[in-house]
């Protein structure tokens, strides 16, 4: 019972924070919408997407990138959660969570799930706007996408958690954008199918093929079209567990990075 109370409390707190930071929702949506409305419009004529699974016909570029843009919402929200955890640690409010009389892995996973739920809400807000812009997927696809989005959000949130356990100062966070977020996004199938990338650079293709974000995007893409991609599912799940495990290790006061901090004066 007390685990449920604590989990609910952590989720509700994230909701409150999200509600108090409405600009976060707007900025989370503006980025993918710019890609969808401006970038995709420019490339629609230039790029035709051949028939590749899960599509059963030729599709336009904006239809192709929609799952990838949902992925970028999850990716940025995962990093936002990570940034928020580094901020909480610097500001001290993380201590309230870590001194709660509940197992630390449970607390961190609860925080991860809370962040994933926020990501899910943002992704559905994006789907709604995309639908209003005329980009539709099968109706049941929106339902099937929920678990795919949740698993991908958990994976990216776990990556954020992992980064937050190793990043000691807020100032160091800018590097995450350059060294994690942009490479993950551009070296994935979010903006272009991997076979196109293979035509131009085989090395980049293989890097992208092993990028867990690619698998998250493919998981969402297949789910939106009422299909299941088992490889993407397993890669995403295993990556989530690995990232989460290392992050929990990082937050362990006996072993992880927290131990290596200098004493406060």
């Amino acid at each position: 019972m007390k685990y449920w109370v604590a989990f609910k409390g952590i989720v509700i707190r994230e909701m409150w924070r999200f509600w108090h930071q409405k600009a976060r929702l707007v900025s989370a949506l503006v980025r993918p919408l710019l890609w969808l409305v401006v970038f995709a419009a420019g490339f629609r004529a230039a790029l035709g997407i051949a028939i590749i699974p899960p599509y059963d016909t030729y599709i336009t570029y904006d239809v192709y990138i929609m799952p990838g843009l949902a992925g970028i919402i999850l990716l940025f929200n995962g990093m936002q959660s990570s940034l928020s955890m580094v901020y909480d640690r610097e500001m001290g409010s993380m201590k309230i969570l870590l001194t709660s009389p509940l197992p630390r892995p449970f607390l961190l996973v609860s925080k991860l799930v809370a962040g994933a739920i926020i990501s899910l809400l943002q992704a559905y807000a994006f789907f709604l706007i995309a639908w209003l812009l005329g980009i539709e997927v099968p109706l049941m696809g929106y339902v099937y996408a929920a678990p795919a989005l949740l698993i991908t959000a958990l994976m990216l949130g776990a990556l954020g958690l992992l980064l937050s356990s190793f990043i000691k100062q807020l100032e160091n966070f800018a590097g995450v954008m350059n060294f994690v977020v942009f490479p993950m996004f551009f070296l994935s199938s979010a903006l272009y199918p991997l076979w196109k990338l293979k035509e131009s650079n085989e090395w980049l293709y293989w890097v992208s093929a092993y990028n867990p974000f690619t698998h998250g995007v493919e998981l969402i893409r297949f789910a939106l079209y009422e299909s299941w991609n088992p490889t993407a599912t397993w890669v995403t799940l295993v990556t989530t567990v690995v990232f989460c495990g290392v992050a929990i290790w990082g937050y362990d006061p006996k072993r992880g990075m927290q131990q290596k901090k200098k004493p406060s004066k």
Binding site: V5, A6, G9, I10, P101
Partner: peptide, 11 residues
């Protein structure tokens, strides 16, 4: 305060 209470499993 509610957040803290929940972390201590208070109903």
């Amino acid at each position: 305060l509610e957040y803290h209470a929940s972390l201590h499993g208070m109903s």
